[in-house]
Design a protein around this nucleic acid. Structure first.
Lengths: 110, 110
DNA sequence: TTGCTTACATAGATAGTCTATGTTTGAGTC
DNA sequence: GACTCAAACATAGACTATCTATGTAAGCAA
């Protein structure tokens, strides 16, 4: 069974934003599942990381949240990207790729 | 002027080990330079991160250090990988690639 | 001897994840 | 209808690892 990894510090916001860009109006639990499945079961976001991150991003205006009901009739907060959120996502992806590219250079020198 | 980035938490040991695997017997300052140049000027290790990291790795037996003299006749500590250090490097690179691959999966889907 | 630089070093701040725990609420069961 | 279980959200505190800021020692040059 594949060992599940922690989310690398600094990448959680990006992963959440990206997940909501792919499919909007997911609630917390769904976002966590999306990240796990979408990463082929490698990345696992813990609730203690997820909810504070969502709050931060609400306050920064990257997301809006709306209380609703799940298919099983449970209350849940559904999140959606704002324009600022999309812009932020772009920025974070750019920065991530730049750093990841730099690390790749170190890891495979000719 | 290309914006220089911080080293992502969790990657510094790997970067140092990889640098010493490419060229052995570098001292601290040289390692920092190697990482900066080797990353095309993207990654900058600060001294306050570098030296504690080197100490940690000495104590864990991943490196051995030997005091010597630079070409300019300054005292410096030259580092070299141990067998344990090589093994650790392999392990860290594997883990990093796995996580980076998982993140790429999340970032990619159209 | 003054100043500049190299090289190493440490303390404390900071950021962002996790673990552990707790609350509310709906659904199913006896 | 009391009881249990799980979904979904939430918060506090721990932990890890980077950074900033600062300091020391030593060599060289003016």
């Amino acid at each position: 069974m594949p060992a599940r990894d922690e989310i690398p510090p600094g990448t959680l916001d990006m992963l959440i934003l990206r997940t909501l860009a792919t499919r909007t109006d997911q609630h917390g639990f769904e976002i966590a599942e999306s990240i796990r499945h979408g990463s082929d079961d490698v990345l696992q976001v813990e609730e203690g990381s997820l909810y504070p991150a969502l709050q931060r991003m609400l306050m920064k205006g990257w997301l809006v949240g709306e209380w609703g009901r799940t298919a099983e009739n449970r209350r849940a907060r559904y999140y959606r990207l704002t324009a600022a959120g999309r812009k932020r996502l772009e920025h974070e992806v750019d920065a991530y790729r730049r750093v990841a590219g730099a690390i790749a250079l170190i890891l495979r020198p000719a």
